[in-house]
Simulated assay, not measured.
Amino acid sequence: MNEEEVLAEFRASKALLEGHFLLSSGRHSAHYLQCARVLMNPDRAARLAVALAAKLPNEVRRQIDKVVSPAMGGVIIGQEMGRALKVDAMFVERPEGTFELRRGFSLEPGDKVLMVEDVVTTGKSSREAIAAIEAAGGKVIAAAALVDRSAGTVDLGVPFHPLVAINFPTYAVDALPPELAATPAVKPGSRAQP
């Protein structure tokens, strides 16, 4: 799947939004990718996961024992990646503000894990998820995401394989362009802001 085909999936599901958005990273943007919406159709979610799995190098695909994703945004794509790679998929969540495995999920010491996200902007959630996976005994060998919004700057400490890079500009609150500053920000993500 090329970038235009991926964007077509977002447009078809009305998941590419325009306005003034406060991202979970704390940055502001005139564009928001509502991955939950693009993934709500099981056939579309499966197509995107198969395309993302195909972007992984063969040597990485062969090593993966488990897929782990952060809740909430990564749950659906993580499940579909597990299906595409034919491995178990689970998620970490933040019951007390820090990611951890719960609900009976566990990793065997040394399990080779692919950490899967929906969108990566600053990489904060991804790095926190990777730390939780490693604290639970897993070894994260790579990360993957549907969308890299970091403009290629994110460093997750492991090889990172996005399906597509979409570089809509993001802004700090003190550097908003006038057209964004003139409208209230909407917080469409699932994570509460600090």
Rank of each mutant, 00 (worst) to 15 (best):
S24I: 07
S25E: 06
H28E: 11
S29L: 07
A30I: 07
A30D: 14
Y32K: 04
L39Q: 00
L39D: 03
N41E: 13
R44Y: 05
A45F: 06
A45M: 04
A45T: 03
A46E: 14
A46G: 11
R47I: 00
L48F: 01
L48I: 06
L48K: 01
A49W: 00
V50T: 12
V50S: 09
A51N: 06
A51M: 10
A51G: 10
L52D: 04
K55D: 08
K55G: 08
L56R: 06
L56M: 08
R61C: 11
R61N: 11
R61F: 12
R62Q: 15
Q63P: 10
I64P: 04
D65C: 09
D65M: 10
K66L: 13
S69N: 03
P70E: 03
V75Y: 02
V75M: 14
I77D: 02
G78H: 01
Q79T: 14
E80Q: 15
M81G: 00
G82W: 01
R83H: 09
A84Q: 05
K86P: 00
D88Q: 12
D88P: 14
A89N: 05
A89D: 00
F91Y: 15
V92N: 05
E93Q: 06
G97K: 05
F99L: 10
F99T: 03
R103V: 10
G104L: 10
F105L: 10
F105R: 09
S106I: 07
L107M: 11
E108C: 09
E108F: 13
P109Y: 11
G110S: 13
D111Y: 06
D111M: 12
K112P: 09
V116A: 12
E117Q: 08
E117G: 05
D118S: 13
V119R: 01
V120D: 01
T121Q: 05
T121A: 10
